[in-house]
Write a protein that binds this DNA or RNA. Structure first.
Lengths: 232, 232
DNA sequence: CGCTTTTTTGAGAACATTCAAGGCATGTGG
DNA sequence: CCACATGCCTTGAATGTTCTCAAAAAAGCG
């Protein structure tokens, strides 16, 4: 379960103070939000749209470390420089916090810090899941896991049943997130479709046809394993 | 730069209170420290030795998400169950904190929470680097990166120049950390050796012969790229 | 010293990548 | 309104890096 904002821990007075330092920002598709190596002067909260966060190697290879949607937080870091770049995928609305001022506010409101620690811990857990995916899962398992994750997060953000999953990002980005090429992503989707786990409304919309099968194909982690009722 | 303990933020009175809830624990090689799925009742600080943290898939595939050494912290989580297992590699000394009691102490000492947030942010940055490694680097680059990381962390813990790097873990564990098989790990080490970047004192001790070459072979991230003096 | 465990090396197989081409949308200009 | 360009996605064939299987060499340990 994802937190829907860092602000949700605060009361109205505290929110008013937070509001004083925040700017509302818009970004068009493909617009950069932050650059790897730039001074990390701001933190962000995604209010609407989809954002990709990525790291680059010197020769241009790219690893997307995360996709952010409504409610997701961006900017946790110790370094005074961004260690990643962030770019808008769709039209995006953001809350922007000046780092310095937010730090001062944190001094006053320990609840804010607690919230950030929760957020960081959540992201850490997600990062560890992603390491498992990147290090040990097959292409098909990666793709199945990805669709299930997007579905879960859509459910968390509220609304629908999560069986119709939007893929706002191009195949290229999915590949760079899952450690695959664009072609392998495409082929994996095709295989999941032929196996009857999903169907495609269009190239950017997946329907989950058989969630249990998809879970199976995602390569269950130990803790995800459904507990089987003991038969005596 | 890694923090050498969560306690380093506290004064002597606070440390005394921390000391009241802590137990000193020993673990022999291969001894389990925590199990994926068990109630997360404790957090740990490694005082001596080497620990591996890993996640399992239902079919037994394993991803080691981190190695912990002196000063490293274990147990950051939101879940009330461990989402990973931890096992001693060498003989290990640990400080063990009951989760409930530590949480109460955190209420009193915001500095502790700040420290944990720093730790979490550091781990998050490391996790993102590891995603880049697992998703986009070649076997040789992964191995070179791994040796350099171990060297850096040894330097941080103090002492030597970092040119002689101990590998307390077996090849098997290195493979499960780097997303490779044991054979590929071995072959990668051999290649790095033949290229003149490293030499082997014995199978568990690597010497860095040419650090610049090793950096080169590690596949530099954008931010790691040495700034070249402009020639006019 | 003989046993086990770990590490290295070799040969063949496999999964994902690379290279290449074709399909399918969307948008622009004639 | 159609022709054509462009970008994105899918599919095919060949290649390659890493994996699997196998065995030998080296190291640790009683």
């Amino acid at each position: 379960m994802r937190d829907l904002s860092v602000c949700s821990a605060l009361d109205s007075t505290e929110l008013a103070n937070l509001d004083k330092i925040v700017s509302r920002i818009q970004a068009a598709p493909r617009q950069m939000i932050s650059y790897q190596g730039d001074p990390a002067d701001y933190l962000f909260n995604v209010t609407e749209g989809a954002v990709k966060v990525y790291k680059l190697l010197a020769d241009g290879r790219r690893q997307i470390t995360g996709f952010l949607f409504r409610g997701d937080f961006l900017g946790l870091a110790v370094s005074d420089q961004y260690t990643y770049s962030a770019e808008a995928i769709t039209s995006v609305s953001l809350c922007r916090f000046p780092r310095r001022k937010l730090e001062k506010l944190i001094e006053q409101y320990p609840k804010l810090e607690k919230r950030l620690l929760q957020t960081a811990s959540n992201e850490l857990a997600a990062a560890q899941d992603q390491m498992l995916l990147l290090g040990r899962k097959t292409a098909e398992e990666r793709m199945a896991t990805f669709i299930l994750n997007l579905s879960d997060r859509a459910i968390c953000r509220g609304g629908d049943s999560g069986d119709v999953v939007a893929l706002p990002m191009p195949r290229n980005d999915i590949g760079d997130y899952l450690g695959l090429t664009i072609e392998t992503v495409s082929r994996s989707i095709t295989r999941l479709r032929k196996l009857g786990a999903i169907s495609l409304e269009n190239s950017r919309t997946v329907s989950i046809v058989d969630r249990d099968l998809l879970l199976e194909l995602a390569g269950l982690a130990l803790e995800d394993r459904p507990t089987v009722a003991m038969s005596l």
